[in-house]
Every structure is written in C-alpha cells, then in structure tokens.
C-alpha cells in the first residue's frame, strides 16, 4: 500500500508512564478516521506520532509506504498537513499571512500561492477576515485560520494526501464546527486520508467512516462507526452511561441524562 498513513505497534513512554501502548492504526485514502477516547487516553500523542512531532519509543510510522524517520521534513509536509490543538500564533500576522504559511513546503515548486491561499480562505469562509491580525481574533476564528492553513498546505488534494486534525472544532460555535467537519468530509471525498481527534462522539459518529477508540493508551476498539459505537463499549470506556440510537439511518450518541432538567438545552 502506498497511500495513507499507518502506525504499526507504536508505543510512547515518558518516565514510567506509558502514554501510547502498542497501538496499530491506519489512516486510509478517501477515509475519515476519528480517534476518540476519554481525557488522557493518548489521542493527541497518537496523532502526534502520525504528525511526526512525537517520536515513538517503539513501532514504526509509515507515510505512503515510507518510514517517517527516513522522510525529509519538507517532503513529508507536501504529503501530510497537520492542525495542532493549539492554534495560537506568536506575532501579529494577518489571517492571510498565516494561511500562506501552509505553502512553505511548496516554495521551491512553481505554484500559484495567491490563488491557493485565496481558495482556502474562500472555502473556510475567512475571506472577509483576511487582513485581520490573528492575535485579535476569537479562539474559534483562530482555529478556523489554522484549518485554512492546513487546507492550503494540502492543496492539491490527491489520494496520497494525509490530513491530521487535533480537535479542530474545540473552540468553534456549532455552525462553524459543522461547516468545518463538512469540509473535512469533502477533503476525504477528493481522496485524502483524514485523521481526526474529536471529543464529541456524536460528531465522530456522524462524520467519520471509521472510529478508533482509545483507553489508557491502548486501542480498545477500531472499525466502522456502528461496530465501535456500541452503547456498552462506550459506557464502559468513558465510565458514564452513554446511549446510542439510530435515527433516519444515522447513529446518534449522547450521555444518558436522568435529571429531566438537563435534557433540554
């Protein structure tokens, strides 16, 4: 297989603590794979291994068939774009300047930076904010800017593209979160392998093709959404009753709320 990204039996330990324990995960072309699990389950670390920012203590990560350790940073960046959890920018760059940073790995190839950046701003709905300084934006707008940068970096999207997103919608309101996740789906339709860490299990069930459920750094379950998102498994892993129900052919996941006051919004 020469597309996508695979992690084979990767582990990460720091001191005596094992953060990721013998996990094997593959992000396949044209597929959205969502990584879910409780706090501290090792989701971000797992994505960090795939992103090349966390070195696994053991196991290998392969990007399009190449061992990540042997791939140059620049060539890896042409295939794989990453959005970290922290979207802060140290200096007052404008939104457009930040999005243009996504083109850094493509600099020595002839590419129309202005057009790619304009397209990325338009698809994420940021065109009207392009001259604003990122330091003056809200958390959600900053996240959207980071997402637009990832879109610009992943252009052109092919079957070799890998896009990794660590809680891309955590600071967004519901409208922007839904729009962003819809865009993520569109990227996968164009061939990209998408890895997506999400806290919102319901969103994961709605937008992902496959789900990887982590518990204490191990893969508890992985596979198509209906296989993993079973009420019993989720309730056990999260330690709280979780219900899964089918409505109009789509799985919905949410906590069981006994107190009627909490069931409304």
């Amino acid at each position: 297989m020469t597309t996508g990204l695979t992690l084979a039996a990767v582990s990460v330990s720091r001191g005596h603590r094992t953060i990721v324990d013998d996990a094997s995960v593959s992000f396949e072309a044209g597929t959205v794979t969502s990584v879910i699990g409780p706090n501290g389950a090792g989701k971000s670390t797992l994505l960090g291994i795939a992103a090349g920012t966390v070195r696994p203590t053991s196991g290998t990560a392969r990007l399009g068939g190449h061992d990540l350790r042997r791939l140059s940073v620049k060539h890896a960046a042409r295939r794989r774009a990453v959005m970290p959890q922290d979207a802060t920018v140290a200096f007052a760059f404008t939104v457009r300047e930040v999005v243009a940073m996504g083109r850094i790995p493509w600099r020595d190839l002839k590419s129309d930076v202005d057009r790619v950046v304009s397209d990325a701003l338009a698809t994420t709905g940021l065109t009207h904010l392009q001259d604003r300084e990122v330091t003056t934006l809200s958390g959600g707008e900053r996240q959207l800017t980071a997402f637009a940068r990832v879109v610009a970096q992943a252009t052109p999207v092919t079957e070799e593209s890998v896009i990794l997103l660590d809680e891309p919608t955590a600071a967004m309101d519901i409208a922007h979160a839904e729009a962003t996740l819809a865009l993520v789906r569109a990227l996968a339709r164009r061939g990209a392998a998408v890895g997506l860490v999400l806290h919102d299990i319901d969103a994961a069930a709605a937008y992902a093709d496959r789900v990887v459920l982590l518990q204490h750094g191990r893969v508890r379950a992985s596979g198509p959404v209906p296989e993993v998102c079973a009420s019993a498994t989720l309730s056990d892993v999260y330690g709280t009753p979780i219900e899964v129900f089918d409505r109009d052919g789509r799985l919905h996941v949410g906590p069981v709320r006994r107190d009627p006051v909490c069931t409304g919004s």
Binding site: K74, A81, V82, P84, I104
Partner: peptide, 19 residues
C-alpha cells in the same frame, strides 16, 4: 522566510516542512 513558521509553534512549524 522560514523564521515566520516558528510563530505557529514548533509542532506546526515542523508539520509545515521546516526543520
């Protein structure tokens, strides 16, 4: 020009192809 990417943080700068 590569220094700009460091403003994104080390992880993002690395992922953007900067050593």
């Amino acid at each position: 020009r590569r220094l700009d990417a460091l403003a994104l943080g080390d992880a993002s700068a690395t992922a953007s192809g900067v050593n």
